[in-house]
Design a protein around this nucleic acid. Structure first.
Length: 490
RNA sequence: CGGGGCGUGGCCUAGUCCGGUUACGGCGCCUGGUUUGGGACCAGGAGAUCGCAGGUUCGAAUCCUGCCGCCCCGACCA
């Protein structure tokens, strides 16, 4: 724990990896591409999960759980869906092990071959729509608004802590509707939920938009997304919400009796966010001293550290801090009093900075004598000595101030690195500078692909609030009706 | 799949080129003591199939062959 972080400037990627490990968020497991999420990291994810779950319920959704395994044949039912996921599926082919006849541990029992292979879900549309077929008969069964919290597996070639791991945790909402309009409205509603969560809780500004055809979810009619800008100038897709049209209903033959007695295929959406949000959170706020957490998601909002000489002084100061901790807790603040006598205060200061605790209160003999307390804030790395009286109110104010400061700081960074480009040269320069680039595009997949090949930049989204603006494509010069957002991305 | 790197107590690491007593050191851990306003110090202690399997040799962490695993950079990524 005593080692120093690599600085962002020296090696951003190494900084990120060091930070994840040193802040005790996660570690690599021995399984390729898979990580162990450690208790502190998981506590942050649990906060996200709890808040999102509440938001889903407030918008009328309920939770359910579907199988981890999906029969292979289900995948072939929706053509573009299987095409999108086929290359990264883990497949279960056998169900039994046996002792190796040669005495080398266990081997797969060749006689225990499954008649039909099972796919470890990379996403659950197919198994869920196969189930919805039985649940939906009439318009009275609609809308069906279900979410599940689950793990999924995508066999990625290259992985990165939280941003892309072979197995990850997420939620996936799957809804069924009577009309196309309703389904679109649902997809848009959930996009708003995600955007709210990102901004209000993660203090992370996001761009709301719709994906181009190239970037669209396999099997969707439209993919809405929120895109965030990281400190190194690369974009991160933070959440997606898909309008699936009738694609899955047709693939799984899910029809309902309409109000006028007809039969129609159901309209669908799906939407999800994952542990990738952890990566987004880390890369949005953290600095060279470690993690920086927005108070609303911090497992510990305030840590109290006693400074003392000898057991007598310790008893006195810890008692005083216990009182403050109890008051803070009663006021709804998540608080930890670290009275571990085996660690010195200086060690604790460094440790909680590394772990991103928003506010640290320290009290020593000088404070006891003068009725003061030291308040240190993580976001600005500043500290002040203030009266211990009214500390609860002061801390609550400060937490709000930090939450707001993190959002405005991130928003400022995102805005200042968003550039417009009207020529190919400007476009290249803007990309190299990092950040979002707003530019005209002729609307064809071919041009987007060409730009991607040349620059590694993709269209992150076509912003929902993009004003109509006539222009010409930066590549082909063909007419364009509005600007889209390009960036290099994770 | 291409390129690079690594594999030695829980973690980091020296030693490998050029084979030779008991495998260096640090962090952490245990015991005792002194300390405590920014990652303390002293003393003692425990902890190792040197990734795996063969081979060469009187002798292998070190040389040879094969294999396995992980990380990083690319390719890939709804």
């Amino acid at each position: 724990m005593a080692s120093k972080l690599t600085s962002r400037e020296a090696d951003y990627s190494k900084w990120y990896n060091d930070l994840v490990v040193q802040a005790d968020l996660a570690q690599h497991s021995d399984v390729k591409g898979c990580m162990v999420i450690k208790p502190y990291g998981f506590a942050i994810w649990e906060r996200m999960k709890d808040v999102l779950d509440e938001m889903f319920k407030e918008t009328g959704h309920v939770n359910a759980y579907f199988p981890l395994f999906i029969p292979k044949s289900y995948f072939s039912k929706e053509a573009s869906h299987v095409e999108g996921f086929a290359k990264e599926c883990a497949v279960v082919t056998h169900y039994r092990l046996m002792n190796d006849p040669d005495g080398n541990g266990v081997v797969v029992d060749p006689t225990a071959k499954l008649e039909e292979e099972l796919i470890v879900r990379p996403t659950s549309e197919t198994i869920i729509w196969n189930t919805y077929k039985d649940w939906i008969q009439s318009y009275r069964d609609l809308p069906l608004l279900i979410n599940q919290w689950a793990n999924v597996v995508r066999w990625e070639m290259r992985t990165r802590f939280f941003l892309r791991t072979s197995e990850f945790l997420w939620q996936e909402g799957h809804t069924a509707h009577e009309t196309s309009e309703e389904a679109v409205e649902e997809a848009r509603r959930m996009l708003e939920v995600y955007a709210d969560f990102a901004e209000q809780w993660m203090a992370m500004p996001v761009l709301k938009g719709v994906k181009s055809i190239n970037e669209r979810f396999a099997g969707a009619v439209d993919t809405y997304c929120i895109e965030a800008m990281m400190q190194d100038g690369k974009a991160l897709q933070a959440g997606t919400s898909h309008f699936l049209g009738q694609n899955f209903a047709k693939a799984f033959d899910v029809k309902f009796a309409t109000r006028d007695g007809g039969q129609e295929h159901v309209w669908a959406t799906s939407w999800g966010v994952s542990t990738r949000l952890m990566g987004a959170l880390i890369m949005t706020h953290s600095d060279d001293a470690g993690l920086v957490l927005p108070p609303k998601l911090a497992p510990i909002e305030v840590v109290l550290v006693p400074i003392y000489k000898g057991p007598e002084q310790m008893g006195e100061i810890v008692a005083a801090l216990k009182g403050i901790a109890a008051e803070l807790k009663a006021a709804g603040v998540r608080v930890k009093l670290d009275d571990d006598d085996s660690k010195r205060s200086g060690w604790k200061f460094a440790e909680y900075e590394l772990k991103g605790v928003p506010v640290r209160l320290a009290m020593g003999p000088r404070d006891m004598a003068g009725g003061t307390i030291e308040i240190a804030r993580r976001d600005t790395q500043t500290k002040t000595v203030e009266s211990a009286k009214g500390i609860v109110e002061r801390v609550k104010e400060l937490l709000e101030e930090i939450q707001a400061n993190l959002l405005s700081r991130a928003a400022e960074r995102t805005t200042s690195t968003t550039r417009t480009a009207d020529t190919w040269e400007e476009f290249l320069a803007a990309l190299d500078a990092g950040g979002f680039v707003s530019a005209h595009w002729d609307g064809t997949p071919e041009t987007e692909e060409w730009i991607k090949q040349q620059t590694k930049a993709t269209i992150r989204c076509i912003p929902l609030d993009a004003p109509e603006e006539v222009g010409t494509c930066i590549k082909t010069g063909a007419p364009s009706c509005c600007r889209v957002i390009f960036a290099r991305a994770y």
